[in-house]
């Protein structure tokens, strides 16, 4: 399960929309060991491509060092697919090198709605997980779980059971 603040999701979606039809990519850092995404860092797509993304290696070094200095880790690594579904491609799986990260995919193929899904990718094995969008500043017990298992038109809004 990925729990992530709504404002961060909105910032990621805005980044993906801004760069569409190129793929957008970035990181959400959080305190090491917390599993809590807290600091959104949009990254340049050095490939500037509609079908491929790649962090600029020097920007990545800077950002990874900064996270290290702040005792943070990459809790979420995200990118967009601009013409296909939000599911990891074979390329995504081959490159996935952060076993502790949530790999968040946003599809911007539909201009009116986004498909947002999250995956763990460990040793080439992809496991989808639910995304829980947390409303900052409201009663935390009023949180809903959003299951992004299907396209947004048929998303089930499941209560978290609390």
């Amino acid at each position: 399960m990925l729990s992530i603040d709504r404002s961060i999701v909105e910032a990621i979606v805005a980044h993906a929309r801004r760069d569409h039809p190129d793929e957008a990519c970035g990181v959400v850092a959080g305190p090491a060991g917390s599993d809590t995404p807290a600091r959104h860092i949009p990254m340049d797509n050095a490939a500037r491509s509609m079908t491929f993304y790649e962090f600029d290696s020097m920007e990545q070094l800077r950002v990874w060092r900064e996270m290290d200095d702040r005792d943070e880790e990459p809790v979420v690594i995200y990118h967009s697919h601009t013409a296909t579904e939000a599911y990891p491609s074979r390329t995504d799986i081959s490159f996935a090198g952060e076993p502790g990260a949530h790999y968040l995919l946003v599809s911007t193929r539909d201009p009116d709605s986004e498909e947002i899904r999250s995956f763990r990718i460990v040793d080439g094995v992809v496991t989808e997980e639910p995304v829980r969008i947390v409303e900052a500043g409201v009663d935390p017990h009023a949180v809903q779980s959003y299951m992004f298992g299907q396209s947004p038109a048929t998303v089930d809004y499941e209560c978290s059971g609390r």
Binding site: E23, C25, M43, A47, S49, M50, T51, F52, Y53, E54, F55, S57, Q60, L61, W64, R65, I77, H79, H81, T82, A83, T84, P88, S89, R90, T91, D92, I93, S94, F95, A96, G97, E98
Partner: peptide, 20 residues
């Protein structure tokens, strides 16, 4: 010396990505 996992991917097929 610092080693980092390259962060890359995308909708492209793997063969094409490898060519790039």
């Amino acid at each position: 010396v610092t080693i980092l996992p390259a962060v890359a991917g995308g909708a492209f097929g793997f063969a094409a990505a490898a060519a790039i």
